[in-house]
């Protein structure tokens, strides 16, 4: 089994992983960071989105060993102590969730969208969330949340 070294939310960690271990499995089961959810496990739903060297990826469609040497960001890394990230606050304010299962992927994606395009408009948000499915179909509040979160992130 190969050993990999990654930085997860700023902390370096070295672990042995199996060839077939997905990045999502590594994060949830070996690092015990269960905020990253596995929804479909067929790389369609986006619940498992994390950042890999700053880019959003579906962690169920990446092998853990492919991430060797990379910086990984998960939902647990967004808050600053007890202070939630502005995007998390916006999701709470607008009730941008129903069952909450898709929320980690939605929030990670939303933060990345705004970081890449601070002035993103509603059209950009809707297209940017194409890879994230909310099976409760609670999209309208999610869009409202991302708009507010984007405004807060712009400061």
């Amino acid at each position: 089994m190969p050993a990999i070294t990654v930085r997860v939310n700023g902390l370096e960690v070295t672990k042995e992983v199996g060839a077939r271990t997905l990045l999502s499995t590594f994060i949830r089961e070996q690092l015990k960071l269960t905020g990253t959810h596995v929804g479909c496990d067929t790389s369609q739903c986006g619940a498992c989105v994390v950042t890999l060297d700053g880019k959003t990826v579906k962690s169920c469609a990446v092998f853990a060993w492919e991430a060797d040497g990379a910086d990984i960001g998960t939902i647990e890394g967004l808050a600053d102590g007890d202070n939630m990230h502005p995007m998390q606050e916006a999701f709470r304010e607008h009730h941008g969730l129903q069952c909450g299962f898709c929320t980690p992927g939605m929030v990670m994606t939303a933060v990345s969208l705004v970081e890449n395009n601070p002035d993103i408009d509603e059209d950009g948000i809707r297209h940017g969330l194409e890879g994230n499915i909310c099976r409760c179909t609670g999209y309208q509040n999610i869009i409202d949340a991302v708009k507010t979160g984007a405004k807060a992130m712009r400061g």
Binding site: K55, T56, V57, V62
Partner: peptide, 9 residues
């Protein structure tokens, strides 16, 4: 192609 996450990989 696909969605933003797919396009990143």
């Amino acid at each position: 192609i696909g969605d933003p996450h797919v396009r990143n990989r």
